[in-house]
Design a binder for these strands. Sequence first.
DNA 1: GGTCGATAGCTTACGACGTAAGCATACAGC
DNA 2: GCTGTATGCTTACGTCGTAAGCTATCGACC
Lengths: 228, 228
Amino acid sequence: MTPPRDALSHDRVLQAALALADAHGLDALSMRRLGAELGVEAMSLYRHVPNKEALLDAMVDAIVRSWIDAGDAASTDWRDRLGAIMHRAHATMLARPWSVELITVRPRVGEGRLRYAEAVTTALLEAGFTPQLAHHGLHIVDGTIMGFTAQQARRPTAVALGDRVQALADGSLAHEYPGISRTIREHHDHDEEYALMVDLVIEGLARLRDGEAPRRTGLGANYALAIS
Amino acid sequence: MTPPRDALSHDRVLQAALALADAHGLDALSMRRLGAELGVEAMSLYRHVPNKEALLDAMVDAIVRSWIDAGDAASTDWRDRLGAIMHRAHATMLARPWSVELITVRPRVGEGRLRYAEAVTTALLEAGFTPQLAHHGLHIVDGTIMGFTAQQARRPTAVALGDRVQALADGSLAHEYPGISRTIREHHDHDEEYALMVDLVIEGLARLRDGEAPRRTGLGANYALAIS
DNA sequence: GGTCGATAGCTTACGACGTAAGCATACAGC
DNA sequence: GCTGTATGCTTACGTCGTAAGCTATCGACC
């Protein structure tokens, strides 16, 4: 059967879902609305997607896949390779703010995430990290990307919604929160801030590899035990 | 009117919501079920809580509030103060895995979050950081806590759900993903890994304060522009 | 002590949501 | 032309958050 020009397919559904989230946010992405966007009833989508969860997973993987680039491996400097990945991940997520939430919450390991993890891991291994340390490094890089980006992505909302943020900015809470009041008025370039952290992390990883014992603040377990 | 022993109140609703999430996860927290748990109809809750969103925000703030401790300020060493906060935050979130998702997604600035931000900021300011750098430091610390913890919290799920993770562990995907296959079999202590990152970040902040120019991997903006 | 206003909880109802089950259509291969 | 299979539609169920209005209880005051 030659499908008509506008036949559905897994990919068409996926693309429409991405477009809908881009246009109206993640909350607007319901199966009914997605169907409508495709000129089709909601239930028809289930011919091409097992359920909504799987669709969300596919969306996540499509995005994570774009974090890496075939050209990365060409660079010989592992710092550049890692930096490129981290900045690309940051930029692509900020371009679709809804994706941050989605990626944070859905841990399914798909093709894209595997390729990304592989790229980071091999960069570290080739740079002389032990397998143990490379594994830690992957988690540290991952945490850095997600944590910083998540925080940055939700900052505009925080400003828009937080009545208190205004009070802080105009100084009326200066007595209660002197520290924040003093720092909040600075001008901040968030992209530059991220670059700062990326370099901080990469430099820290290099020092770990080189066996320079970090000045320990005390074993983490102590704190964990102290409060549990 | 003396309320009967079991009268509702904002606090009782909040505590019940926390308990329900602890016991059955965030998905189980519906207004109907929460009401049932309190022996009350769903709509009765709305006398004490404006809507579900506000309840979730209150839950978040109750948790974030526990990240700091009055004793922190007593310590003179800023590394210890920061380390204590970061480890406490990590531990309290892991103790309630559902909170990670909630905190990541809801950026409302409440009392607890302000106090936490203030504690981190003043620790940095008192350690000689410029206001500008202290502000960056807060975001870096925040990103580190959330990113790493989020990733760790969802890792068990990733293992449970990812059919591929098994394939990686037993080596059948070694050809496609040699790097991950090599590192995934290492034994990992995740708390120790977090301690590693905390020290890495604190040490990196110290170097920023001391004006040691990090070895730049190239300006972040370059990457961002290259792909957008 | 009778009345009154406020408070707390209940009832009903609406419009979303994800999706199970079964039906209708339309094509490909014979 | 017949038949099997793939595709999309229809209907329906149980869930959700919450708007609107009702009822019952109780302290405060005349």
